[in-house]
Amino acid sequence: MIASFRVLVCGASPDSANNNTVLRGYVANGFRAQLSDGSVRVCSLEGAEQVTRDFVPHLIVAFGSCMPAMANYLGLKTAALDVGACLAFWLHDDPYEFDYAYKIVSLADVVFTNDRWAATHYAHPCVYHVPLAADREAHFRDHQPNKERDVFFCGVGFPNRVALLEDCVDILRSFNVVVAGAEWPAHLPFAENRRVPNSELPNLYASSLVTLNLGRRFNLANSRFNLDASTPGPRTFEAAAAGTVQCMFVEGFEIDDYFDEGAGEILLFDSPSELRRHIEMLRDDPARAAAIALAAQRRALRDHTYENRAARILALVGHRRP
């Protein structure tokens, strides 16, 4: 990519309905690392039409969720056509909101989706799978040999997660466990109903011997095909960059494309007893725990940063620049 290639990263939904604006900044950082600071602008969806006309980008990446009713793209599409920009959407909540993809299919020159399985269901000629990632500056932490807790998890208490942790209560009683987030039932003794700011999460990962990786099963608009998520979410990459050992509940094998259990980058489990064995092993063998955490961190920083994702996007749309 030549230095003069310009990219605008904007929201795919208005900031008033966007709980993930911080991710947009990570995406912009990825493009800046590939191009230059002056070649990348970042703004809200509300300001994107005017910024497009002023900045005249070659590529517009509308990043986020297209589900909110107030997310309207006609003005942005018109501006993109007027300046000759490629309009791409990078959707980060597939497949849970897949039924709303119709809003962008006729407008997008290119569609990027966070989920591999969802990518095969788009009625669009240019659809690519681009997972989310980690931000090197925001998520990297130096390895901490002394841990403050044995087990940590942060996330919403979706029914599948509650059911899994209910099954694990007995085996987790002997460990120091913290589960934080919203909508956790009171009967889980280690769960706290508190939201953790994104800026605090890397420190909590880094200071935990084990970080649980529990997928989400909670569809907001996924009735057309009832798709199962295949690609792990962004916290998989963020936690790895922070230098923790992840124990992931196995629901599919795509994780092997990102972290290699055989190479000692992640631990997988499919039963409470297997999870207990992993935790006990890590407590008894700090050197091995450190080796797994550092291997995962190296892999994340090598292959799973937003700089990596930006490089892929630029390669895929490079033929479209003037």
Rank of each mutant, 00 (worst) to 15 (best):
A3V: 00
F5W: 08
R6Q: 12
R6N: 07
V9H: 09
D15Q: 05
A17M: 03
N20H: 09
R24L: 15
Y26F: 15
G30M: 04
G30E: 03
F31C: 10
F31L: 10
V42Y: 07
S44D: 12
L45I: 08
E49F: 03
V51K: 01
V51H: 00
R53P: 03
F55D: 08
F55W: 05
P57A: 03
I60Q: 01
F63P: 00
F63T: 04
S65Q: 11
P68M: 07
A69L: 12
M70Y: 02
N72A: 11
A79S: 09
L81A: 11
G84F: 03
G84T: 01
C86Q: 02
C86T: 15
C86V: 14
L91K: 07
P95L: 05
P95G: 04
P95I: 01
E97G: 01
E97F: 10
A101E: 12
Y102D: 12
L107I: 12
L107M: 14
D109T: 00
V110E: 06
F112Y: 11
F112H: 00
T113W: 01
R116A: 15
R116V: 09
H121S: 04
A133C: 09
A134Q: 08
D135G: 07
D135C: 10
R136G: 02
A138K: 07
F140K: 04
Q144R: 13
P145R: 02
P145T: 02
D150H: 13
G155V: 04
G155E: 05
P159I: 13
N160F: 07
V162N: 13
I171K: 01
F175K: 04
A180G: 05
A180C: 12
E183F: 15
A191D: 09
E192Y: 09
V196H: 05
P197S: 05
P197Y: 05
E200I: 02
P202S: 08
P202T: 07
N203H: 14
L212A: 13
N213L: 15
L214R: 13
L220R: 11
S223A: 13
S223N: 10
S223H: 10
N226S: 15
L227F: 09
A229F: 00
S230H: 06
R235V: 08
E238S: 11
A242Y: 10
V245S: 06
Q246S: 07
M248T: 11
F249E: 11
E251F: 12
G262I: 03
G264C: 03
E265L: 08
I266S: 08
S271A: 14
E274M: 11
L275Q: 02
R276W: 01
L282Q: 05
D284P: 01
D284G: 10
D285N: 14
P286M: 08
A287Q: 12
A289I: 06
A291R: 07
A291P: 03
A295W: 05
R298Y: 02
A300K: 02
L301M: 15
L301N: 13
L301R: 10
H304Y: 11
Y306Q: 00
A311M: 06
A315S: 14
A315E: 14
V317H: 08
H319W: 10
H319M: 03
H319S: 15
R320H: 10
P322E: 03
